[in-house]
């Protein structure tokens, strides 16, 4: 564990907590894409399949449970909780996210580090996570103005993988044989997708107004 990875995990945790805070306290999911949340639930479900078979550390297992629990409960809230569901912007959240799942699965079957069931699904989760934010970014374009909590959520979610890139650079220079092109490229693509959001976020943030 290094400071970059810890900062990345904490940023990721913060993004999930901000979203849960928004949905649970003000009972609103305005501006949040249910489709992105569904993709993230699939990402965690396929990435953490080894949660019971391979124990890394208490921290690792605890964080996996937090991410699994929070992503599925956010989907549940947005789908079935009456008050929250009412604030869901169904007409605008129309990105065909299922069209992202199949290509990621095919790509994982073609490009992976080891051809085993767990490894292919793990690689699938990497590819899917790289594009999972697309429905949210499209929704953002359509709803123009979003509240600060949603803006913070997206900012933290984009930032965590950027910190992971610093973690991979650090581990590449400090650990022999630590080379994982698939993880690195997927992480880079994921972070680059946030580039224009970061641009507007900092513009607004410096301006001191909400994120538009």
């Amino acid at each position: 564990m290094n400071i970059f990875r810890l900062a990345g995990d904490m940023t990721h945790l913060a993004s999930v907590l901000v979203l849960l805070l928004k949905i649970h306290t003000i009972k609103s999911c305005a501006g949040v894409s249910l489709r992105t949340q569904e993709l993230y639930a699939i990402v965690f479900a396929t990435r953490y399949l080894d949660i019971f078979t391979s124990f890394v550390s208490v921290y690792n297992t605890f964080m996996k449970l937090v991410f699994l629990g929070s992503s599925f409960s956010i989907v549940w809230y947005m789908r079935y909780h009456k008050a929250v569901h009412r604030t869901y912007d169904r007409e605008q959240d129309t990105f065909r996210h299922w069209f992202l799942v199949l290509p990621c699965l095919v790509l994982a079957l073609l490009i992976h580090e080891k051809f085993t069931f767990l490894e292919v699904l793990w690689t699938f989760s990497l590819y899917l996570e790289a594009v999972a934010i697309l429905p949210q970014l499209v929704l953002l374009q359509r709803t123009r103005n979003i509240d600060n909590l949603t803006g913070q959520y997206i900012f933290l979610l984009g930032g965590y993988r950027g910190l992971y890139i610093l973690n991979w650079i650090y581990r590449y220079f400090t650990e022999p044989h630590f080379v994982h092109w698939i993880t690195w490229i997927a992480g880079l693509v994921q972070t680059l997708l946030y580039a224009d959001f970061f641009y507007y976020y900092f513009l607004r943030f410096i301006g001191g107004r909400g994120v538009e």
Binding site: R5, D9, H12, D50, S54, V56, S57, N60, M63, K64, F67, E113, K114, W122, Y164, N167, E175, H177, F178, H180, T183
Partner: peptide
């Protein structure tokens, strides 16, 4: 163990 190292990340 290298494989394990890769999957020691979230």
């Amino acid at each position: 163990h290298i494989q394990q190292r890769l999957h020691d990340e979230l």
